[in-house]
Every structure is written in C-alpha cells, then in structure tokens.
C-alpha cells in the first residue's frame, strides 16, 4: 500500500501531471492533494474554516444557511468563513519561447501552466477573484479578475491556450497591465526571468508601489541551473535563434556561476523592492509553490 504522503506527492509530481490532458483536472488534482495533506500541518490555516454566524437576510445564498442551527432555533443563520475575503489575484504568465525549454518530460511552460492553473483553482476555492495575463513581448491574453461561477473555466482555457513563442519583454506588458489593475491585490508573476534583474524589478516595482503584493515565481529547468554537456555543443538561443559553440567545461564551471549569480541578484533586488521571490525547478512537486502562495495569502487576511 502506498503511504499517504507518497500518494499525495505522487500526484503533485510534474511528470505525473504531464499525463493528465485537461488542465482543470491537473489543478484539481494538485490542489486537492495538497490540501488534504495540510490537515496535519498546524502552521497553515485552512482558508474555509468557520469564522462566525450571520443572520440571514433576503438575497443571501441559501446554500450557506446552517440547517442544524435552524432546526434547533428556527432562525436562519449563515456560516461565514475566513476565506471569504474577496482578494483579487492576478497571475502573469510568461509565454516566451524560452519557456518551451525542457530537459525532461515537463517543460517550463507546462510547469508554469500547472502552477497557474493550480493557483487559479485554489483562489477559486477560497472565493478570491482571479485574473490572468499571458505575455511575451506584449500581452497575449487578458482575463479580468472575477470570482463568478464559470470564470475558472475561462481561466483554464486561457492558460491552456498559452504557447511559448517570441521573446520576453517585461516593460511593455507590465506597463499595459497597470492600466488594467484598478484594485490592489496579489500579483503572481510566473516566468524564467531571462532579463537583467534590475530591468525586471524596475518593470514590476510600480505594481508594488501601488499597494499590490507581488510574488515572483522563477521557473527554471534543472539543466538550466546545472547544464551538462558530453562535449562541445552548438547551442541555439530559443528566443533569438543565435548560435554559440560551447564547451562542456564552460557549461560546467562558468555558466553555473553566472546563472547562480543571476538568481542571487534577482532574489536580492526583489527582496529590496519588497517583492516576494521564489525559485522553483520544474522537476519538483508543486506543493512548495502552493505553500508559498498560502503563506502570502495568510498574511493578507
């Protein structure tokens, strides 16, 4: 018999999720599996735990009436939960060509879709209004934040339609994004951030300045962090299609130090700007990313 923790992790494994064709199923599998594992964790509150009763007023949703209380008191009361805080969550999904890189069964784009879908699903479960922006050099798709029924399906569709192409340019899409953002909320940026840290932070920082919580999910393939080559190789840049002959020694030594410095600098500058930064590798389960989200979400309640 498979231990419960392993069973849960097995369904959070990106390689397992890659076998599920529908993004909604992926998100449901991830989130349900993740939440079921949280019951044993005292550190994180459950977003739908009971908060208070409120007297029924006409127009309230009858599904929220506590019928047990009604049976005892013959008065209708509604159960209120902590999660019902109507936080607006906007997910910014990078769909540039570099997101198509993969060294195993799950590409960065796939992983980013799972992550975005799971976050959208979890937000929907908590009655948060979730929105989506898919961007490359420009904004490809925009799904305004909403908590209504049916909105989640629209989110999944938009996420599923995102395909990697073209280059990343943070300035232009973020400038447009600020026009759509009317309420403060939580902004989640999912990208591989192949840009100078200073440029990234300067492009995103205005969101933070307008009172938003900004989380940067830095999605990288393991090979991007620790590339291995058997010999000299001709590498093709997936965004610019430039070619460069690279030796195995350089990939092993020089490149690793450079990408490490890039991550450190991005983390440092993000922290300096009040942005939350989270590096996530595509061969890791998704629960780490969801924990990060909940941690931030807890702080906003």
């Amino acid at each position: 018999m498979i231990p419960r923790a392993e069973y849960r992790n097995r369904f959070l494994d990106p390689a397992v999720l890659a076998g599920i064709s529908h993004l909604d199923l992926v998100a449901k599998t991830v989130v349900d599996g993740f939440i079921s594992g949280l019951h044993r964790s005292p550190d994180f509150g459950f977003s739908q735990e009971f908060a208070e009763y409120r007297a029924y007023t006409p127009g309230d949703d009858l599904r929220h009436i506590d019928w047990n209380v009604y049976a005892r008191t013959e008065r209708a009361y509604l159960k209120r939960y902590r999660g019902d805080t109507n936080t607006q969550i906007t997910i910014l999904l990078d769909a540039s060509a570099s997101m198509g890189f993969a060294s195993h069964a799950v590409s960065k784009m796939d992983y980013a879709r799972y992550l975005a879908g799971s976050l959208a699903y979890m937000a929907h479960q908590q009655r948060d209004a979730a929105g989506l922006i898919v961007f490359q050099e420009d904004i490809l798709q925009y799904v305004p934040p909403s908590g209504r029924q049916g909105h989640l399906a629209r989110m999944f569709h938009a996420i599923g339609q995102s395909a990697p192409a073209l280059r990343t340019d943070f300035r232009k899409p973020f400038l447009h994004f600020q026009q759509f953002l009317h309420r403060r909320g939580l902004v989640i940026v999912i990208s591989d951030f192949y840009e100078k840290p200073g440029a990234i932070v300067s492009a995103i920082n205005p969101l933070r300045a307008r009172g938003n919580e900004v989380v940067l999910f830095h999605v990288l393939d393991p090979v991007e962090l620790k590339p291995t080559l058997n010999g000299p190789a001709m590498l093709i840049d997936m965004e610019t299609e430039d070619a460069l002959e690279v030796s195995a020694e350089f990939a092993r030594d020089e490149y690793r130090s450079r990408i490490g410095a890039h991550v450190d600098m991005l983390r440092s500058e993000a922290k300096g700007a009040g942005l939350d930064y989270f590096l996530i590798e595509t061969d890791r389960p998704l629960d780490a990313a969801l924990r990060e989200y909940l941690t931030i979400r807890q702080g906003r309640m």
Binding site: P232, M238, E245
Partner: peptide, 27 residues
C-alpha cells in the same frame, strides 16, 4: 565526426559568450 557539434536548443545564451572557443581548441 567528433567535432561536428549537434545544435542544441537552449533557453537563453545570455550567460554564454565567445570565450568557450578557446576551451574547445584546448580540448
């Protein structure tokens, strides 16, 4: 045969530069 490198797509070459050529020659 050995030095006919096979093109490999990679996310970004922003952390690579021309310097590895000397390394290849050394090899």
């Amino acid at each position: 045969r050995k030095y006919r490198t096979t093109p490999l797509p990679f996310s970004s070459l922003m952390f690579f530069d021309k310097r590895p050529q000397s390394s290849v020659k050394h090899r």
